[in-house]
Write a protein that binds this DNA or RNA. Structure first.
Lengths: 246, 246
DNA sequence: CGATTGTTTGAGGCCAGTCAAAGTTAGTGG
DNA sequence: CCACTAACTTTGACTGGCCTCAAACAATCG
């Protein structure tokens, strides 16, 4: 419960002011910095702010027509790819300020599921309107090219991790990634709630839940982290980095 | 040697005509279909066709300023990501008609190495000029969004493969992917040369060369494939599919 | 031809998966 | 508020697939 309150106070604006990009603390993460004020307003106008999703709700499904990309304003969303064998593979966790849904451009249908891991507020950005705006605002076109490029390099890091890393390395890398992304939002980089279950972590990192649990246990025994349910505290972040990059 | 000749005859135009997009057999793969003739000429004008790369040559390196994306006209190029630990991870093989280099958009510097696996002809597409053209030709902007989106879904398939697949599944999936991509170029989908070494295959699929070799041996013993050095023949493509998706 | 690089094959060990069961938490409705 | 259930997590014993180490073999190139 406190978890949800934390998320909300982080992302929503005080005094119930109308939510807009210009007063959103996350805009520095999801929009280019170099926008003029009137450009910001133009973008603001096309963005839809729908009802919040609840845990387990789908933002979109495989096969849904691609119409929009989505920015997480609060909460957390996972992206789930379905292999030809029908097995599910989580390919990313999206935290506030991060943008997802760009998989759908390949052939105008989403290639992934997107599922809320907790109560989440989402900004919907209709892609056609974004494309048109991109013609008028060059820095916006560049920004979206960059977003997609970042998605590619993020996936490549995961590929490298899955290809070469031990169970310890994978989990250390995930914790460090979450830590860094929290810090970008001016939140604690050493103490945070995991929005995802052990099952999700295992699926994402290519490990079984038993292995995930054992690694958490070992890291705890060595006083590198401490965990209380989904609350994680990084006690020795340097050693965690050593593990991740050894 | 025959290998190289094959590649050249495939990609270059007969009678030494000047190479241009309008007479390139691969343009249907790397450009949007809906271009007007004068639009095609505009694109053609910005594309640079440099000297061919030889085996082992770098197309770009990590840290190089990002200026262009590249289309493979003949040969094969691998993309190599460098993990924080300094370990190399191949994240893709690019065949004729395929485009690489879009990792560099993240922060204007390339995040990967690109290395020719054999003698390769490359079309260089300066990105700034492409961006400007994209403002004038909407279908081109959309096309490049799609290319990047495809790169993302390609990486996600690899993530799923590395996360869940056995050694057999990984190799079967790679062979099927190469087969499908050959067929797109009107080449045999059942008999082709592997442009990459066993070491490269192992690195790409997160396996050791010994395991790669053993799997090839097993598949051969079961008459699913036959290999003669780098020449692979898919004898039973259905069974290969069964293996890949089981 | 020798040197180098790449590939195959074998023996043994280890890490993570599998199977099984107990323990814990969250959610539900009485 | 508590009892009950379902879902999630932890722990243990065992197994197996892939890695490691090692050596022989094959191909390529100067």
């Amino acid at each position: 419960m406190t978890q949800l309150l934390d998320q909300n106070t982080t992302a929503q604006c005080p005094h119930n002011k109308r939510v807009s990009c210009s007063n959103c603390r996350l805009s520095s993460l999801c929009l280019p910095i170099s926008l003029e004020l009137n450009e910001l307003d133009q973008i603001d106008e096309v963005i839809l702010r729908n009802q919040p999703l609840h845990k387990g709700d789908y933002l979109y499904r495989i096969g849904d027509p691609f119409t929009s990309v989505y920015a997480v304003r609060a909460g957390c969303v996972k992206s789930v790819h379905n292999s030809e064998e029908g097995e599910e593979q989580i390919t990313g966790f999206y935290l506030p300020g991060e943008i997802l849904g760009m998989d759908g451009l390949t052939d105008d249908y989403h290639a992934n599921f997107a599922i809320a891991l907790e109560t989440s507020s989402i900004c919907e950005i209709p892609f056609q309107k974004l494309e048109i705006l991109s013609h008028k605002i060059p820095s916006l076109q560049r920004h979206f090219f960059q977003l997609m490029s970042r998605e590619i390099t993020k996936d490549q890091k995961l590929i490298s991790l899955l290809s070469k890393g031990s169970a310890e390395q994978r989990i250390a890398a995930l914790l460090l990634s979450l830590s860094a992304r929290h810090q970008k939002r001016q939140l604690s980089g050493t103490e945070f709630n995991l929005p995802m279950s052990r099952t999700d972590i295992g699926n994402y990192l290519g490990l079984t839940i038993e292995t995930v649990s054992r690694v958490f246990g070992r890291l705890q025994k060595e006083n590198i982290i401490s965990t209380d349910r989904r609350l994680v505290t990084l006690l020795n972040i340097d050693q965690l980095r050593t593990i991740a990059t050894s």
